[in-house]
């Protein structure tokens, strides 16, 4: 298990930001945490922030949070282990939804009661912080053509709009990486379609990027697949499931597009 000192190494968020993050979590009205589990989370965060992470054990939580007496035996009375799992699940749900934009993430890793803290991948303005695509990748991309084919079904307008957002984000990022980008258009845009057919006919240094947003039970699956048009070889692919929110999660879509653009630039530069 991690101890408090290692959980607070210098690259991790400062205590002030961690405590602010804790307040944000606890203030969330949809967070599925009992009052007792809110005390549990507050206790382990406070102990870790104050450098006492090594004191966090099932026994100390049982006594200090759950009011057990000094005969408390976590093997016969596994309340701490069960509630830690429920907190872990609640935190996951929180960061998938309302807390998606939080700067600092609190987690309780499996097998531990000592929380860990990390910076979210976006800053306060929800802009994506990324390492610049390397010069080598840009030079390689300058010669390459990328054809984006959005395969999202148009039957569901909500899913279709998310697919369009995903495509828009990718177009911007791939153009920034100096790809020549085409999006497979609707049939009425004949000129663009003809230009793409021309690329398909002579696929020198051209790639196909198939993307889709697919409805699942309570999630939307965002996926992309990069292939070489010359031989159909799949060069990279990925997918992520996001819980359905009433409105499209722009931050999550932008973050996924950013990761995809990085991976695509890297895959193409390695050719």
């Amino acid at each position: 298990m991690d101890d408090g000192i290692s959980a607070l190494r210098h690259k991790n968020p400062p205590a002030k930001d961690i405590l602010t993050a804790l307040e944000a979590v606890l203030a969330c009205d949809t967070l599925r945490l009992s009052e007792r589990n809110r005390r549990f989370l507050s206790f382990v965060v406070a102990q870790t922030v104050s450098g006492n992470g090594e004191r966090i054990k099932a026994y100390s939580i049982g006594v200090d949070v759950f009011g057990r007496d000094d005969t408390f035996d976590p093997t016969l009375d596994p309340i701490v282990r069960i509630e830690a799992t429920r907190i872990r699940s609640a935190l996951t749900a929180y960061y998938e939804q309302k807390g998606a934009g939080d700067r600092v993430r609190i987690a309780i890793p499996p097998g531990s009661y000592v929380p860990t803290f990390s910076w979210a991948r976006r800053d306060a303005g929800a802009r994506i912080k990324r390492l610049p695509i390397s010069e080598r990748q840009v030079v390689r991309a300058e010669a390459a053509t990328m054809i984006i084919n959005d395969r999202t079904s148009r039957a569901d307008p909500d899913v279709a709009s998310r697919g369009e957002l995903f495509a828009d984000a990718l177009v911007g990022l791939l153009r920034k990486a100096r790809f020549k980008v085409h999006v497979v258009p609707s049939a009425e845009h004949r000129a663009a379609l003809d230009a793409i057919h021309e690329v398909f006919s002579h696929p020198k240094d051209a790639y196909s990027l198939d993307i889709a947003v697919r409805p699942m039970v309570a999630h939307r699956r965002y996926s992309w697949r990069l292939s070489d048009l010359r031989n159909g070889e799949i060069l990279a692919s990925d997918s992520r499931d996001y819980v359905v929110a009433p409105a499209p999660c722009f931050d999550l879509i932008d973050a996924l597009a950013g990761d995809a653009a990085d991976a695509i630039a890297s895959a193409v530069s390695d050719r």
């Binding site: 016969l76 596994p78 309340i79 282990r81 069960i82 799992t85 699940s89 996951t92 499996p110």
Partner: peptide, 26 residues
């Protein structure tokens, strides 16, 4: 069917299944 499918995909659900069984046994 949904439980089986999600159990194969979602580590949080796997942990919750363990917590559930532990609570039942306790």
């Amino acid at each position: 069917a949904e439980l089986r499918r999600r159990f194969a995909q979602d580590p949080r659900l796997v942990e919750l299944c363990e917590a559930y069984e532990t609570a039942c046994e306790a």
